[in-house]
Design a protein around this nucleic acid. Structure first.
Lengths: 330, 330
DNA sequence: CTCCTTCATGAAACCGGTCTCACTATATAT
DNA sequence: ATATATAGTGAGACCGGTTTCATGAAGGAG
């Protein structure tokens, strides 16, 4: 690889001026600028990013924390982020935290060490107080997360609206005995609290009360879905619809339904969440809440890039609209 | 962030010796070593990776090229690679090439510029001749690819064995009219050639000939699968089994089968390829060829890490075993 | 015509490390 | 006792850029 010194030798022009040309600084005569550009071209010279970073002059890598790549929700997010970043010639270092607090810290340290110039967190295990100190070292953007830190932009959907829309859909289809999956019915912050609120509001709007027997806590995987379905078949007083909060759970339920001879949606309507590709594969195909993942990822990337450029953001909270997708399961 | 100079000041020991301690070099007295370590601890000092990289003394990032993150095959590969890398404190910069030759070059340039210290290519658009020059700048490992370059280690499955095993399975289940999806029946290199060979050998072993009408070229997506199923329903002389070469295609076929009232496997047996999670979601669940993705990714990461350390590899070609998974579709 | 900006330029410091080299002190070989 | 290796140490060059600063030339104001 040619270095700046090679360009200096070839062009007979000083290092300082060559650097000015590289960085498009003013105060360089047209004549010299052209000589330098010619020499750079002849040597097919590219400035060494490592050297530039030494002086803190380079913003070209963003760190991306996801829970797991194999979770389609995150892989679609990564896809959108990487594409937007690539457009701007930004590199993406990714990292699976699996909600491990220690590992999360280790990755955040890359910011401290200037190995990355900013971070997009799509999942965060640590608390606000633990994250805040890292802001000193570079910009952070939250995407799909619920933590709020002043000055940290956040991109997400309105979970309350999503739950409200989903449950209202079930009610409008005529179902009245609604089961519900959540991380915790009495969560006092985050996603779950807002989804719970949306659920309650939708039920109250029809003067319906919540049957605690039909509330399932912490169900996430396909396997969990099978368990939920099993439990429901064993109930005397069965719900006629379920808001699963997750396509995986919903998919697991369709599999178990076949085994137990439960008909969806006749015996039990099932509503997913996310609109992942698997919705089209199950039988019946899943009705679900479509999350604008593409837009979320793309926006998060745009925000971090703006921050790289030192631009001020006019807005810090972005709530993107969800959409109900009705298919066969409701 | 504390720098080496801060450690120098605090410990009263020279930069050179501090560096020796950092890098565990010999010829440092126990006494000074401990003083330095104490100072480092007190300042919670971490060496700046960018500075170390300047002197070519750091191997901590690997570039990873995939086709698309959202393709589960690749996301599982990424998962395995990232996990193994994280164990060794190696960072992964990923990149979606989408088979774009120009973009692939741009990413390979990171190797030239020492932005990454090595590359794992799980898909490659350019030719051997185009890739070879980059070897000068750092190690490359192929994973899931078919290109052969001397000295470049490669991790993959035996496509011939996979096709042979798959088709033989169909034959053993009693099917005789086997349809087949491939990138090209007369491919003279790569995956397709080997799969074709496997297909032919399996058929010849039963003295069966190949019906060219039943060979589908370049089918990859769920949508493609629907098309294939449609074409088959329109045939006068129908196959009774199909080797799809792809879970997606197989999944698409199950969806279309429902629409056209085709019974799987009674009317048509369908065999997938990869053993992706979606195999369990379709109805019927898909029989498929299980690829050892986990092992492939993990091994590829191990190889690049060995090369980082300057170790010699005793073996360059790794063919990992596939496994037939029989479910409901055959 | 002098004084003050602004432009154009290169020398040298700097970023935070690693590494070569020269030098001293001690141990071993002859 | 002298020659020779080896451990321990720090000064300073170096990696490849950016940035400060000093200097000279040109242009405009008074």
């Amino acid at each position: 690889m040619a270095t700046i010194s090679d360009v200096v030798k070839r062009s007979g022009i000083s290092k300082a001026t060559v650097s000015r040309v590289i960085n498009n600084h003013p105060h360089v005569s047209k004549e010299k600028r052209e000589k330098v550009l010619a020499a750079m071209k002849e040597l097919s010279y590219t400035p060494n990013p490592t050297a530039r970073r030494m002086r803190g002059q380079l913003n070209t890598t963003v760190g991306l924390v996801v829970h797991r790549v194999v979770n389609p929700y995150f892989s679609y997010l990564m896809d959108a982020i990487e594409r937007k970043a690539a457009e701007h010639n930004i590199r993406v270092i990714f990292f699976q935290s699996k909600e491990d607090k220690q590992k999360e810290f280790e990755f955040l340290d890359l910011l401290k060490q200037k190995q990355v110039d900013g971070m997009i967190l799509t999942t965060v295990a640590n608390s606000v107080e633990d994250i805040r100190p890292y802001l000193e070292y570079g910009p952070i953007v939250f995407c799909n997360e619920y933590l709020r830190i002043d000055d940290v932009p956040i991109v997400r959907i309105s979970e309350e609206d999503a739950a409200f829309t989903g449950v209202t859909h079930l009610l409008e289809e005529g179902y009245r005995n609604i089961a519900y999956c959540t991380g915790g019915l009495f969560a006092d912050e985050g996603k779950d609290r807002d989804r719970n609120t949306g659920f309650r509001k939708a039920m109250e709007a029809k003067q319906l009360s919540i049957n605690p027997e039909w509330v399932f806590i912490d169900q996430h995987s396909i396997e969990d879905g099978r368990t939920v379905m099993k439990k429901i078949t064993e109930m005397d007083n069965k719900p006629d619809a379920i808001f699963t909060g997750s396509d995986e759970v919903a998919a697991g339920m369709t599999i178990a339904a076949r085994e137990y001879g439960v008909k969806i949606p006749e015996d039990l309507a099932v509503l997913g969440f996310d609109d992942q590709p698997l919705c089209l594969l199950t039988s019946p195909q899943l009705s679900t809440i479509h999350q604008p993942i593409e837009e979320m990822g793309s926006l998060a990337a745009e925000l971090i890039i703006k921050l790289f450029k030192g631009e001020k953001l006019e807005q810090l909270e972005y709530e993107l609209p969800i959409k109900l997708v009705k298919r066969e399961s409701t």
